[in-house]
Design a protein around this nucleic acid. Structure first.
Lengths: 246, 246
DNA sequence: CAATCTTGTTGATCTGGATCATAAAAGCGT
DNA sequence: ACGCTTTTATGATCCAGATCAACAAGATTG
């Protein structure tokens, strides 16, 4: 458990700073958080059907949440990046409904739900933060849904790339280069597209000089062009004029 | 505000009975709940961008949550039926992100969020219930997403019909007849399909004798057949062997 | 460093569903 | 009951993307 990288500790519940939660809450969260060591790509954090115990935060790496579609075909439901939480559907069902798999060398931390709930009993601000967190997940989910339903392959992937770009540069300035943690097939699956289509759309983006891409390394060349292409997720009146999911 | 029909009062937070929450909590919830009178089809409960004040529960009727896609095209994000809550994305954003429109003569009740939160301060069980509620919404959203992404029009609509059937017979026994509160176009939009396609799939279902349908009145003739067709949402290990979203 | 396996690319073909167009029904207001 | 509007049905055409297939390029492993 050599935590040289203290990046995105579990305690930073959806960017909740000590000022937001108060020192005591942070302290107690730190006490119940289970910092798991880094695991290799392909490791399952939990499987669908297992009893629900804890919600998880990503510290470093990336997670995919998948389901097995009738014929055993894997379907990607969501990606989870550092600073984000997953496993929340378990609260309702008392079981995990998705299977969570590490996409690369990944470290997560667990917040046992019962204990988390107890801590929240003493900290109204933590309660508020939890509600915000869950609401944010609903929002992201809806954004995703709205962006995929009834739109072209280019629009979907442009949306996804811009979304990943925002989420992969948590806190820091937005990068114009990034290394995708997932395969084309996984990216496609999450957008309801065949792997071949995903690959072809990437080629198209390259030809149009919207991005550079060699393997999983992406470089954004023309953000405006991509945004024009992507499904515009207008959240009117939020003042920031932002277009992609938070 | 003549509430002759006390069906699905706002207080029954996701099927939370007095035994679950305790009498006092129920009492206080009742005190803050705002029972709105029935409104006509087409009435907007709130608009995207408006400041968030309350979450809403459907008492009677039905709601569609919509977004306006770039060109002003309306996209249905979700339907809300009696006993269900909506507007929860506002918690995160402090603004409503969807527009909520009554599909038919509809009565809703509002739970002002700040007050709800205050009540919850005194009632741990209500807090737990709220978390469950939000988690359940995330789950439903994901189910929807997984059911739509990368599946055929038949599969999507079969899923939707079965899902609506379950949700429209809250509590009571499942009906084999039901009256859809939405048009083909709205149904299609929520599944990412063109209205024409929706209509054609309905015809196909009729020919195959899976359903009877005259206008918005549906009669289920062959549930097993529909289920075979629909995207199977296996939630493994939940014991009930249920297939559609909760 | 081969040998193997996974991932990514590209081509050819085929089809499900969008789109365009038109007509028949339902609703609905008066 | 009568127009008027909205919704539903159905046909014809077209195209985006799935599917099948083959291969190139990285990764991984012994």
């Amino acid at each position: 458990m050599q935590d040289q990288s203290e990046a995105s500790p579990c305690v930073a519940l959806d960017a909740a700073t000590p000022e937001v939660l108060g020192d005591d809450a942070i302290e107690r969260l730190r006490a119940i958080a289970i910092q798991h060591g880094a695991v290799a790509a392909g490791t399952r954090i939990f499987r669908a059907g297992e009893p629900f115990r804890a919600i998880y935060g990503v510290r470093i790496g990336a997670i995919k949440a998948i389901r097995y579609d009738g014929a055993g075909e894997e379907q990607v439901v969501a990606f989870h990046l550092p600073g984000e939480f997953f496993g929340l559907t378990g609260i309702h069902s008392d079981r995990y409904v998705n299977t969570a798999v590490a996409l690369e060398r990944t470290a997560v931390c667990g917040l046992p739900y019962q204990r988390l709930f107890h801590v929240a009993n003493d900290h109204p601000r933590l309660r508020r933060q939890l509600m915000r967190l869950m609401s944010g997940v609903i929002l992201t989910e809806q954004d995703q849904y709205a962006a995929m339903a009834g739109h072209t392959a280019d629009a979907r992937l442009a949306f996804l790339l811009l979304d990943l770009r925002e989420r992969m540069s948590r806190g820091g300035a937005l990068q114009d280069r990034l290394r995708l943690p997932m395969t084309r097939a996984e990216l496609g699956s999450s957008a309801g597209l065949a792997p071949e289509t995903t690959s072809r759309v990437f080629q198209q983006f390259r030809r149009r000089e919207l991005i550079e891409a060699s393997g999983r390394n992406i470089r954004f060349l023309d953000l405006a062009g991509l945004r024009r292409l992507a499904v515009p997720l207008t959240h009117p009146g939020d003042g920031s004029g932002r277009t992609t999911a938070a």
